[in-house]
Write a protein that binds this DNA or RNA. Structure first.
Length: 403
RNA sequence: GUGGGAUUAGCUCAGUUGGUUAGAGCACUGGUUUGUGGUGCCGGGGGUCGCGGGUUCGAGCCCCGUAUCCCACCCCA
């Protein structure tokens, strides 16, 4: 037997019901916020992710499905969605066109990781990207959108918030953090020593307990923000307060991708194990420029659909449509024709075998039909059909021409 | 990539110190005289016990390897 590859799952039956329910709910809300669907290729030039996500990140460093294609191109399956959307934005010259462009997307992402609960090699994200708005109101609107989606799905969450500063204040802060790390380099973990060289900000969310104690004394980015970043962060908190969106400030919250600046946020769930981040995002004002576009402010987020799946509260499924059955061999053709006719306006299924009434009622139950419709010899003789409403438990016999 | 746990029917799981034809519940399917379901009764199908070696007279059970899943690290959505 051939099995699917490690960390790559099929989605079917009930999972598929939940999956499409999520997509429909999220799509509806994104459209209410004025976003438009965008689909980008699963395969992109490797250079795109090296430049956007950043070579220092683990995603690019060791998790990409990368290979050389038959045309000698260095390509990889997308590990995240933002890079492709930004590339498309620049390629279609929307940066030069100016104005505001808002997109949402959903689809498969690929990372060569060791699978565990909430972490697959092929997984699905729903995300949105907004281009051309530098106002912090847009950051707030984005957070509200995530909040709306999670609430619509009945998912409890905690929202964590931080500001990563911009090109004014971030480099200065990084320098002061590096000199702090150098002073305590002998006491921190190996990973942090490595991070010092590659991406020093990342030491802040190190999971190592000893490191965390040490970093309590570390300079806080939030105290080193320039006035513009400081003002935006204060404004963001006020907007969220005004709109009754609860949040916690987490000064150690660092986004894992290199392109973020200013607002960074993460939605976490306490009910799904260690892979608790269900949505994450923030502002990335410099990324369009990094990818050869005209400088364009941007902000976005992505949600991990698999991590949400078991948290989604599905609406109650109601009986729907018709089930048709014959009690006599000679009525089968008629039943098939009637079913075909009924499908023009309703969901309708039928059984291809003659069975007794009890069996048909059971069959109607199984497909969760609202009406069980049966034709036997009595009905054949009178051109009628017996119809039972399985919800109200009422029944009647009607002429076929009225059915 | 590192460490730990698991793997027996479609699903959830029993299976005694290694000893005949490996069990249950649910699900599926048929019947219950051509007339009342979801909730009665009776029956049926379905498992080379993840896979590959080894020890043994004999392995679902012990040993080694391997795959996958789960948990944690790491990373991130």
């Amino acid at each position: 037997m051939i099995n699917s590859l490690r960390g790559m799952n099929d989605i079917l039956s009930e999972d598929y019901e939940r999956f499409t329910y999520f997509i429909n709910t999220a799509t509806d809300i994104a459209q209410k916020y004025g976003y438009h669907f965008i689909e980008t290729p699963l395969l992109e030039e490797t250079a795109l992710f090296k430049r956007s996500v950043g070579e220092s990140s683990d995603i690019v460093g060791k998790e990409m499905y990368q290979f050389i294609d038959k045309g000698e191109n260095d390509v990889c399956l997308r590990p995240e969605g933002t890079a492709g959307v930004v590339r498309a934005f620049v390629q279609k010259k929307l940066d030069k066109a100016g104005g505001i462009h808002r997109f949402f997307y959903h689809g498969s992402m690929f990372r060569y990781e060791r699978p565990q609960k909430g972490r697959l090699r092929q997984f699905h994200q729903f995300g949105v990207e907004s281009f051309g708005v530098d106002s912090v109101y847009e950051d707030a609107a984005m957070i509200m959108m995530v909040s709306d989606i999670l609430k619509a799905l009945g998912i409890a969450y905690r929202l964590q918030l931080n500001s990563l500063g911009d090109s004014n204040c971030m480099p200065q802060y990084r320098d002061s953090l590096v000199s702090f790390i150098e002073k305590c380099e002998d006491d921190i973990c190996e990973d942090c020593v490595r991070r010092k060289a590659t991406n020093p900000i990342r030491v802040l969310d190190c999971k190592n307990g000893t490191c965390q104690v040490i970093y309590k004394e570390a300079p806080k980015l939030i105290n080193h923000l320039c006035s513009a970043c400081e003002d935006d962060f204060e404004k963001l908190k006020k907007i969220l307060d005004d709109n009754e969106i609860a949040y916690e400030i987490d000064t150690n919250l660092v986004r894992g991708l290199d392109y973020y600046s200013k607002t960074a946020f993460e939605f976490v769930s306490d009910n799904i194990g260690s892979q608790s981040a269900i949505a994450g995002g923030g502002r990335y004002d410099r990324l369009v420029e990094f990818l050869d576009g005209r400088p364009t402010p941007a902000v976005g987020f992505a949600m991990g659909i698999e991590r949400l799946m078991e948290l989604i509260k599905m609406p109650e499924v109601k009986r729907d449509g018709y089930y048709l059955g014959a009690m006599d061999e000679e009525a089968i053709d008629l039943v098939v024709s009637l079913t075909h006719k009924k499908r023009k306006s309703d969901k309708a299924t039928c059984d291809y075998k003659a069975k007794n009434l009890k069996s048909h009622l059971k069959g109607a139950d199984k497909v969760n039909a609202r009406f069980c419709c049966v034709i036997g010899t009595n009905e054949m003789q009178n051109d009628t059909i017996w119809v039972k409403d399985l919800e109200n438990k009422t029944e009647s016999t009607m002429f076929l021409k009225n059915f």
